[in-house]
Every structure is written in structure tokens, then in C-alpha cells.
Nucleic acid binder design. Sequence first.
DNA 1: TTAAGAATAGACCGGTCAGTCTAGTGAGGT
DNA 2: ACCTCACTAGACTGACCGGTCTATTCTTAA
Lengths: 192, 192
Amino acid sequence: MAHTTRERLLDAGLEMLLQHGYNDLGIQALLQATGTPKGSFYHYFRSKEDFALQVIDRYMDEVHQGLDAALGDQSLPPLDRARRFFELSREKYRRDGYLGCMLGGLGQELSGINPTFAEKIEGCFGELTQRLSACLEEARQRGDIPLDSDPRELANLLLNCWEGAALRSRLWRDPTPLDQMLDFYFLAATRG
Amino acid sequence: MAHTTRERLLDAGLEMLLQHGYNDLGIQALLQATGTPKGSFYHYFRSKEDFALQVIDRYMDEVHQGLDAALGDQSLPPLDRARRFFELSREKYRRDGYLGCMLGGLGQELSGINPTFAEKIEGCFGELTQRLSACLEEARQRGDIPLDSDPRELANLLLNCWEGAALRSRLWRDPTPLDQMLDFYFLAATRG
DNA sequence: TTAAGAATAGACCGGTCAGTCTAGTGAGGT
DNA sequence: ACCTCACTAGACTGACCGGTCTATTCTTAA
């Protein structure tokens, strides 16, 4: 299979980037963990940066799958759909050992030193808020949140607070901050 | 002056750690930026890790100064005092070029790989929430927030959401996420 | 004046970094 | 049978990492 080695590297990259971040992840360690010779890595990827950017793409594939599953569930009112996405994310974090969100992690680490990553990650946040704000707009039109709410702003708010809670849950290795944040936010949002 | 070199290193470390994070900050670069020979650095600090931990202490000194200034202002109701602390922080971020909060930055970068830093930073967050929750408790007793609120939980919530907003403001190089988060939080907290 | 210790100075160390290079392997097409 | 080319394999490069070492200078007090 032509894609096996590349897939294996991206899979391991997903895991190792989440735990180690970018600068602390050595190519050597990645190769050792996957039993890959260096030649193969540089056959598939131009550089470490190129590799990490593709790992982020893979991460976003999972994110969009979560969004599809949650926001696409027409049996739920829109606000519950939005909340469900974050609950699915929380379950993913649990499976990973509460290491938080890769976008938040790499965003913090790299946005001060590498514009390519900064733009990439802000682009990912943009995709997320785009879909969330469409969902919140639906809630607004139904009157589930005040009619004068700004869905775009509310979506950014939701995502930003989530990222903060994810950082704290990474420190605690515990989902409590995530749950408390969701309770607080969705109660407050409905009241305007 | 015996402390001049050490002070100079810590000052530069404050700035450089905020921008570069830990792993991307080279001792060499720090020495070059401050015109310090290597011998001096290792005269004052046991290691790079020891240095960074002392930089965090210095950062926390500033944080506590901000807390003193804001929470100690008895002319303001307690909720305004809490908000004022974050507004002072926002002004500090502005002066730094909106690079966010060092605790959040180092927490994200290092909590997955270095338990010493993870504990250190969680300890700092603890100090912060301790003082904030005392302030919120005062607000609760005055009835400015619902009597059945949990000040400790509200303080953690406030700090966590702030850290998320700080990350986004670092990506945007812009204070908007900070302000929107404060508006949202303090409106919601008063209503319970 | 001198002894002592703090602080400066930077050459140097082993190890590791991302990335390059060349050689070899193996499967598919002709 | 043979050629091609994607892929594997890992030795190697030069730069840089954090940290050590020894030598020297400066400060201060006896």
C-alpha cells in the first residue's frame, strides 16, 4: 500500500504533537516511534513544518466530522447541537488523556514565532466559528437566544472560552473545567 | 551593583519567554540580546529550567501588583474590582504587543512534557483564583451575584475563559476577544 | 597591600537537531 | 527479461543545543 507509511507518520504525529507540541517533537523520536527510516519521512514531507501542517489538516478532518455529527443532527434544537459538538470534543479529549486541543496548543506555542502556523491555526478557528455561528444564527431565528444577539461574536466567544477551559483541563488532566464552562455559557447565552 | 546582571537577564527573559516560549528560547540568544557572557548566566542560574521558573516568579510579582491595585480599591464594588484587574491585564498585554499571558503560553507548551512547570503554573493559577474568589465571595455576600453562586467555581471560570480569550487575542494581535469575554462574563455572572 | 570571593569571559564539550545524500530494494509495466 | 520509479534505508552534515570548565577581572574588606 502506497499510503501506509505516510498514514502511520501522520497518525503518530497527531498523538505526539498533541503531547509534545512542535519544538519538543524531534523527527528522530517520531521515526523511532513508528519504525520509519528518515528517507521515507522526507520522501513524503518537504520538512518538519510541512509535516506538522498536514497533521493539523488531519486534526481538522476529525473536527469537521464532529461538527457534522453534532450540528447535522436535526432531531436536536440548534443550541443543543452546538453543545453536543463540544461534548463530543470532551470525549475525544478524555480518550487522549485530557491533553487539550491541538489548535490551542500549537497556537500558543507557535503564534509568536511562526506566521505560517499562526495563519493556519487562525484559519482553523475561522472554519470552526463559521459553522458554529450558522448554528447559533438558527437558534437566534427560533428565538432560543435573544434576537439581538450576534451569532458570530457568540461563536467566537464560545470557542475562545472552550480553549481556555481546555488548557485548564490539560493542567488538571480532568474534564471539570470543560463541563463548567459549557454549563455557564449555554445558560448565559439563552438569556442574552 | 551585584544584582544588575541577574535583573537584566530576568527582564529579557520575561520578554523573550512571552514571545518565543520555552523551547524556542535559546540561552545563546538571551545572552546575545543582553550582552551577557555565559559564565554569568550559569553563575546566577542553575539551569535554563531554573531560570524560566524564576522568570515566572517575576511575572507573578507583576500579576500580584495588578491584583493589589484592582482588588484593593475599596471605592469600587467587588465585581468592578475583579473586572478592573483584567482590564489592567489587557493594558499590559497591549504594551507587550498582545502576546497573551505567559502562564497560558508556558502552560500549553510545557504541561504535557514537564511536570515541574505544570505544577508551577497550576500553582500560579491557584494563587490567582484564590484572590479572585475572595473578591467574588464579597460580591455574593452583598447580593451582587446570586447567593447560591460558588465563588471558587466562578473564579476558575473567569480565569479560564480569560486565558482562552488571551490566546485568541495573541492570534489576532488585538484586544477584541478580551473585551467581549469580559462583557459576556460579568453580565452573565450577575444574573447567575 | 593583599587575600578572597564574586562576577565576568568565552572556549569548549557531547549530544541532538533538521535536513541531505547516495545506495539499495521491490513491485508493475512492457 | 528488463527497465523504471516509488519507496526504503541509514550514514552523514553542519549548525546549534544546554551545560561545563578554566582563566581572568573586579570588589571589598582585612
